[in-house]
C-alpha cells in the first residue's frame, strides 16, 4: 500500500475505532448496503498492554492493560481489519466491514463522505466542546494588569 493510502486508511480506522456501532449504523443508513462478507477472524476480545514513558518522554514502561476487540473480514476482493477498544464484537465487525469496503474504489467515496467524514466531524465537535469547557476554567491572572 502506498504511503498516502496508508495515511488515509489509518485515519478512517482511527475514526471507526472511536465511533460506536450505533453511530456507524446511523451513518450507513444513507449509503448503499455494505457488500456481503466472510468473517476470517473473530470478532474476539483480548488485551493490549498500554505503555507510558518515564517522565513522559523517557524509557517506556508498562502502564496496564485495556480490553480490545478485533475482527478480520473479506468482502469483495478486500480484506478489512479492525482493532477497537472495548468488548463490542458488533463494533469490531462493522468497522472491519467498512474498512474492507473503503478499499473498494467503487464504494469508497460514498462511504467516506457519509460515514468517515461525518463521524470525524462529530468526534472533532465533541473534542472542541471539551476544549471550550476546559478553556472556561483557565485562570486569568490579573496581577500584570494592576501593576501597569
Amino acid at each position: 500500500m502506498k504511503t498516502d493510502d496508508t495515511a488515509a486508511r489509518r485515519h478512517w480506522m482511527s475514526v471507526l475505532a472511536r465511533a460506536s456501532a450505533d453511530d456507524m449504523r446511523r451513518c450507513l443508513a444513507d449509503c448503499p448496503p455494505l457488500p456481503d462478507h466472510v468473517t476470517l477472524r473473530g470478532p474476539e476480545t483480548g488485551l493490549v498492554m498500554t505503555r507510558g514513558r518515564a517522565g513522559g518522554g523517557g524509557a517506556a514502561f508498562n502502564l496496564g492493560e485495556m480490553t480490545v476487540t478485533r475482527c478480520t473480514v473479506r468482502s469483495g476482493g478486500q480484506i478489512g481489519h479492525a482493532y477497537v477498544a472495548g468488548r463490542d464484537g458488533g463494533h469490531a465487525e462493522l468497522a472491519a466491514r467498512i474498512d474492507a469496503a473503503l478499499q473498494d474504489p467503487a464504494l469508497h467515496d460514498a462511504l467516506h463522505r457519509n460515514v468517515v467524514a461525518r463521524l470525524a466531524q462529530e468526534q472533532a465537535a465533541a473534542r472542541a466542546e471539551a476544549a471550550r469547557r476546559a478553556a472556561a476554567t483557565r485562570v486569568q491572572f490579573f496581577t500584570m494588569a494592576t501593576m501597569r
Partner: peptide, 8 residues
Amino acid sequence: RFAYSRPV
C-alpha cells in the same frame, strides 16, 4: 494478549 501499545 494481542499486543503492546506504543507508549502514549
